[in-house]
Amino acid sequence: MSNTDTQGELWEVFIQSKPGQSFKHAGAIHAFDREMAIENARDTYTRRGEGSGLWVVRSKDIVSVTPNEEGYFFDPSNDKVYRNPTFYEMPEGVKHM
């Protein structure tokens, strides 16, 4: 991802739509510092009461898995089906389980 020369750094914006819910990625904005970033995020992404919470983070600080690694990166969890409740056998008629 590129940074621009004159328009400040790129920041990713995350919105929490209601208290208690997860923050969700909304898009990005440009800003020169933290204060400008959170204000630009507010003006750009929450003009209609979309948010009860707002996070901004410099795009360059986000660590992600590259698509080519996806397969083996998530591999360790694929062979542990016993982590899912449906793995277990239950006697006929058991309730509240």
Binding site: M1, S2, T4, D5, T6, Q7, L10, A28, H30
Partner: peptide, 9 residues
Amino acid sequence: ETLGVSRDQ
């Protein structure tokens, strides 16, 4: 911009 082109460009 996620396609690798800057806003200035």
